[in-house]
């Protein structure tokens, strides 16, 4: 279960990360955000940036050409 979802398919780096960050900042600590990311650059970059911000990636699922991440707001 997630509290909110952001679909970033087709969104370029680093805008996808900035959108994730803004979304997380609008949420309460401990809440879960579902992030949908393309494979390639986005999945290579966005998770490490989320981690560096101190949030926790609690689940990662690959679905064909994209990834579904569950991120817990710090």
């Amino acid at each position: 279960m997630s509290d909110s979802t952001i679909d970033l398919r087709g969104v370029m780096c680093p805008i996808n990360f900035v959108k994730t960050k803004l979304k997380l900042e609008a949420m309460n600590p401990g809440e879960i955000l579902e992030v949908i990311l393309d494979s390639g650059d986005p999945i290579q970059n966005v998770p490490k940036s989320i981690k560096e911000e101190g949030h926790k990636i609690v689940e990662v699922k690959k679905e064909g050409d994209f990834f579904r991440l569950k991120v817990q707001r710090s």
């Binding site: 494979s39 999945i43 290579q44 998770p47 490490k48 689940e59 990662v60 690959k62 990834f67």
Partner: peptide
């Protein structure tokens, strides 16, 4: 390790 496969995607 949870087997999430992110590392294999992240590795260039």
């Amino acid at each position: 390790c949870t087997g999430c496969t992110i590392c294999s995607e992240a590795c260039k």
